[in-house]
């Protein structure tokens, strides 16, 4: 199978500007020597705590990171991202229809074609066509996340980064969004880098998983391998916290 993403020896720094009194600026490592690959059409899980460098990695892949060394090869055009908080990822001043048409509008696609594709996409993500007339604040969290996913997919991408796409949602809604992502993955063959802290969800969705702590990848491998035979203490801790032993 072809690789869709290759990351080799990626180092990302951020400069700590120091406070008012401490003038010295120092470089800090956000990612240390990160290397991995993603195959076309696979879902790769990325697990770690807040501040472990998950977001830095996502930003680096999307080309939003300034200070970095190493190689990132992405065999795919306009990568997209679905954000954690569906309350800030949709422009509150615009109607849903406008938001969804925007990526097509800037590609100078005709109005009829735009509307046709938006309608198709809405159907795919399981939203009512009426919601085009609504503003984001009139929708529920789950609906907004569906809109965000639709907007990302309308950019004609084969590669999606999903940054904790369900952790801001209610539990019953979480399951729906997970199923939706899986369905879209199957139908459209997109590769997904799935960032999460919930090992159970990662197990449900992903083919392979990477465990990350303070900027380093501790281990990576197929989900079954990592879960059954964790190598690092941190992974064991995560597995304990995920409550795996007593499933209802």
């Amino acid at each position: 199978m072809n690789h869709i993403l290759e990351v080799k020896n990626l180092n990302v720094y951020y400069t700590d500007k120091g406070s008012l009194f401490k003038k010295k600026t120092q470089k800090k490592h956000a990612l240390k020597d990160v290397s991995f690959f993603m195959e076309e059409g696979e879902i790769l899980g990325l697990v770690g705590e807040s501040g472990c460098g998950k977001t830095s990695l996502a930003k680096a892949i999307l080309g939003m990171q300034k200070e970095m060394e190493g190689k990132i090869i992405l065999h795919c055009k306009n990568p997209q991202m679905v954000f954690q908080d569906p309350y800030s990822s949709l422009n509150p001043a615009k109607r849903i229809g406008w938001i969804l048409e925007e990526p097509l509008r800037i590609k100078k696609i005709s109005k009829e074609e735009r509307q046709k594709r938006v309608d198709e996409m809405l159907e795919k993500v399981g939203l009512d066509l009426k919601c085009k007339e609504h503003y984001p604040n009139e929708l529920s969290g789950g609906q907004r996340q569906r809109v965000a996913i639709a907007a990302a997919l309308l950019c004609d991408t084969k590669f999606l980064i999903a940054d904790e796409p369900v952790s801001a949602l209610d539990v019953t809604i979480q399951a729906q969004i997970i199923r939706l992502l899986l369905k879209l993955h199957k139908e459209m063959g997109i590769s997904i880098l799935f960032i999460s802290h919930d090992l159970r969800v990662v197990y449900q969705m992903c083919d392979r998983v990477m465990i990350m702590e303070s900027g380093e990848i501790l281990e990576q491998g197929s989900v079954e391998e990592v879960y059954e035979n964790p190598q690092s203490d941190y992974t064991k801790l995560l597995l304990e916290a995920a409550n795996l032993e007593d499933n209802v």
Binding site: T172, R179, L182, K183, R200, V201, Q204, Y227, N247
Partner: peptide, 15 residues
């Protein structure tokens, strides 16, 4: 029941 169902379980999701 719905709430309990929604707790992710350790099994692959099959659509």
């Amino acid at each position: 029941k719905q709430l309990i169902q929604a707790i992710p379980k350790l099994e692959k999701l099959i659509l």
